[in-house]
Design a protein around this nucleic acid. Sequence first.
DNA 1: TCGCACCCCCTAACGCCGTTAGGGGGCTAT
DNA 2: ATAGCCCCCTAACGGCGTTAGGGGGTGCGA
Lengths: 221, 221
Amino acid sequence: MAQTPARTLTREGIAAAALVVLEREGLAGLSMRKVAAEAGVQAASLYWHVRNKEELLDLLGDALVADAELPPRTGGWREQYLEYGRRYRALLLARRDAAKVVAGRLTTGPHVLAVLEDQLDRLRAAGFADADAAMAAYLLSAYVQGFVLQEQSPLSAAEAAGASRGQAARAAGDVFRALPAETHPNLVALADDLTDPDMDSRFEFGLQRLADGLAALLRQR
Amino acid sequence: MAQTPARTLTREGIAAAALVVLEREGLAGLSMRKVAAEAGVQAASLYWHVRNKEELLDLLGDALVADAELPPRTGGWREQYLEYGRRYRALLLARRDAAKVVAGRLTTGPHVLAVLEDQLDRLRAAGFADADAAMAAYLLSAYVQGFVLQEQSPLSAAEAAGASRGQAARAAGDVFRALPAETHPNLVALADDLTDPDMDSRFEFGLQRLADGLAALLRQR
DNA sequence: TCGCACCCCCTAACGCCGTTAGGGGGCTAT
DNA sequence: ATAGCCCCCTAACGGCGTTAGGGGGTGCGA
């Protein structure tokens, strides 16, 4: 556990160390002691720079979106909105447990603010009213975060035992198919559809519905 | 801490005790020891009925939707879909930390399955293709869970210090307004819209977009 | 009636956690 | 030189999830 940053600790250095620990151990394994060790320091020293673990996680949440690449400003607002959603999901999937970190957390960190600023700018330029633009932005992040959380949730502990995503999906399908057809006919009939492992398509489906709904709003006002 | 269930422990009794502890202490304060005490038992005894805490939380997640009331089967699919979303959100708001419990958790508990079965039945009856019905159901739960998580997240620790929701919203608005207008013009301009404390309206906005998007899909196929 | 097996809960302990109290080394400014 | 402050240290507290192993109670076969 060599120290990552310079000799003296900073909030940025702590965030960087936390990122390393998160990647290595996951959110459940991220402790103040391990972050401190990664930063070359004792656990109690963190409390000089950070009020508590919650505040450290706020730092981590903002650091996670630090290297977000914004979509190009080409094409219509719809394509840009879709691309925003896709890149946000990709970012959450790229770093271990990122979705769990950012989920219940409304950071006002600089990186988060920069992304939000940019997105609002595009939505207003597209003709959305102020309040609609704000809500459209929240809508997208709520959907993406909710989707990735579901996507990454272990399928009732099935795949925790080393099963691949596809195997787990098949096992989940078996659960549905094994239900009594008198009480749960739809679950039995749609077992394959409900456990389709193509997460990209499932995400895209919802994303297109969101865009369609916003397009209808834009048309009517 | 009187024992809630009968003399001998059951998985249902454990879930009931966990519900009581969750309501009293929140998810962060829910420990195996406290659940055991609530059930009139020692902590280690729980492990006879439950593999680990994760499995206890699965039980809890299913128990949380046990008393869900399904919307009436009147009106069109759209109104029923909207009402599903509203009731799901109300249910997550009704019990402390319910959203955090169910968020990263795909239970196949009996109560969850019953609700899913009913919802799929309505969507198929409305004319949605099998795969579309399955994805529409997932879409709604992803949105509701994501929204409630955001809704309940402390506004950057502002309201943790006893501030009301409205006060916290005003404080968050001040954060946006205090930003330099050259770099963040949209955040400054939309500070009020971004921090509008009327969560019901914000939720309804997204819900209507989802329904509109699904309606467009139904029309085109 | 005895004894055996099995179910279910117990006590005790391990190593980890977040957090706080209080001490002290080393720089900076007087 | 010395006062003061910044920043990290050691040590400890109470609580956590989890496991090992023991032992009462109950029902069943002999």
